[in-house]
Design a protein around this nucleic acid. Structure first.
Lengths: 220, 220, 220, 220
DNA sequence: GATGAATGAGATTTCATTCAT
DNA sequence: AATGAATGAAATCTCATTCAT
């Protein structure tokens, strides 16, 4: 006798929710959080205000969900790269190249979410600031752990694994921020190689450019 | 017959204007642009609405002035460091260490403005986005030019001077962003050494840590 | 699947919009444009600020709509009178009497809008000044065309049809302005007869008062 | 022992006051009462805010003084015309022509004040509305008295002397209002003749155009 | 008398969210 | 579930007037 939402209805609901999220991603990315009115999103999605508040509690929650999705996506991409790293430990160069390449590719594929993650979510409010800090730390920690191990194994040579991790992630984000600010739609791809080289050298990993180039070509 | 503002009055005006700017810097840094209401600033500064609009045209202008001040300050600090660089060309290590150290010291001294420059000014509106992009490019360009020369002289070894410059400035900003997000008030100083090492290695400059340490101690 | 506003809702919307317009007409008429605050209207209509801006873009637009309505109403009344004129051309006296009578009756019926049209809309801003000038010309033109024909047919005798038209409309508006300024609520009706006589004589139309009186009684 | 403002000082004061008044007349005429800021006037006059409030109690008073001056000027012009009328009573035609001509000439000479009197002072606030009403009545009364006498003497033929007076003054003001609204700076002079004819005929005064023309030429 | 810096009440408008249908 | 009309707190900015120098 218990009422259960029929699967078809549930599907429709999910689709609508998704539509709002996707539209919101575009609009937030274009105009930023505060310059985006809820109706801007809804008008574009063809959804009513009432409906919106059925699916989401408020504007901030909507944004947070988008942001969380992006972070989750990126973290899983990173984890993938890192898992490969520890598994095929044979080549650090390859592993690091992998991590960098996958990172840029992920953001390249989804410029809107890149914008939300790196620009749109800055300076919103104290709650979000904390969240951002925590997330950046989480990302940085992924590398910190690796770097710590590599440091013990004398594979890399840096004074401080944590700072190295911060700088490594920072380098990726710098490139993306820079790319997002560009007027013309350049490809992120061309930044991959110099970015890899910069970081490998920074970590004190001995390698010749030719080798990196080969690996880079393999991955791309 | 023409009235001339007496020096004393002018002084008071300058002081008041400064008071508003300084108070605004604090509040903007704490809460961000959109969460800062004009009255928040005025209440804290003990100034009337009318006075505010006598000194500034509107909230955005106030923010822009603060932002411009910070950028100007930082650019002149950089220029200083860079001028030293070309003069005492004997040691690249010293020069780069200098640039990094002065940068961090500048932001350390003025956390509020650092926050405004790196966090508060993100995602405000299209006008500001362009401004930010241009300013970051200006900063990056300072290093790009140096790196290009060093590259020609085979002093550094990087695939791309521009990308190297982006990453160099990015590394500094990453550290500062990270520091700004910290709950406890840590000192930026402890990041200087690893940051120098990371970048020197990244640029392919041969040097031993001991040498850097010595220079670092001299500068600090 | 497309939502259509149900008729009942639409009706309510229309009624609300009308309520705002009618209330605004009263308040504007009483206090003038600049002394009427938006809240004055809303309080009296028992409507929230939000609702107001749902129906109108701003205060000026609201006023302009009211003004336009009044002008439109008056112009159509005039056109009616004029159409009768050209049709029953037999008697000019009758036609002119008609035009005058209908004009005064229209304003009498709607004192508020008369006030808005003749008093409230004066000296608002350059945009409105132009509009007013154009509208007055439009009204005047209705008579100018008639007068020009009558002049050619030697039915009236005036040196200049355009000036005559200006004076004819001016005479109507003078009476109304005068009436609006009266403290006690006198009837406009008593002005109709002398107004007709004044203008008929001015136009050089031969007629005895008795005849006009008869026509006047018929129309009233 | 009593201090007396030296004459020279008094002169300077008067000049300054006059300067403010004249400047205000221009600015009010251009932009209207509510769109004129006190500082607009003062900037143009090169006078400080403080000084302004030494000479005038407030913005409204300033406007009122200007308005009163204009009305006074016009009333005295009218009185002049009317005095001639009663003295040289030989010709009504001449007298009326005189009144009309002098009226238009007065406004022509001082377009700014015309604007203030006829446009700028409309719809300001209840106080001013009353004042305007009273002033218009005063003007109208000047003619009403004449018309009443002329009516008794069977020189004019109108059903109602008061209404005739309203319409007579209204006709003058209509022409001026119309002229003020014109884009191009036309001369008011060309309206004098048709205006005289219209009103003479309206008053039922027998006369041929040629005679009026001659008088018109004499006066002009 | 003169100056212009300072004041603050108050006006318009926005927009996230709620609610009746 | 869905709709969009309704709400109202809150934010920015204006400008006549006052006041200290």
């Amino acid at each position: 006798m218990v009422y259960r939402t029929p699967p078809k209805v549930q599907e429709r609901k999910d689709a609508k929710r998704r539509l709002v999220l996707d539209t919101a991603a575009k609009v937030f990315a274009e105009r930023g959080y505060y310059n985006t009115k809820v109706t801007d999103i809804l008008d574009k999605a063809g959804i009513s205000t009432g409906s919106f508040y059925f699916y989401f509690n408020n504007k901030e929650e909507l944004f947070e969900i988008l942001y969380d999705e992006m972070i989750k996506t990126y973290l899983s991409v990173l984890q993938n790269a890192v898992d490969t790293m520890t598994t095929h430990a044979e080549s650090i160069v390859k592993s690091i190249s992998h991590a960098v390449t996958l990172s840029l590719q992920t953001f390249q594929k989804n410029k809107g979410l890149a914008r939300i993650m790196l620009i749109g979510s800055v300076g919103l409010n104290p709650h979000f600031e904390k969240k951002r800090a925590a997330d950046h730390q989480k990302i940085s920690l992924v590398f910190e752990e690796i770097f710590r191990k590599l440091h013990q194994g004398k594979v890399i040579s840096v004074p401080d694994a944590r700072v190295a991790a911060i700088l490594f992630t920072g380098s990726i984000f710098s490139i993306i921020s820079n790319w997002l600010q560009e007027d013309k739609p350049v490809s992120l791809v061309k930044f991959i190689f110099p970015l890899i080289v910069y970081n490998l050298q920074a970590l004190g990993i001995q390698c010749n450019e030719h080798e990196i180039q080969t690996i880079h070509n393999e991955i791309g």
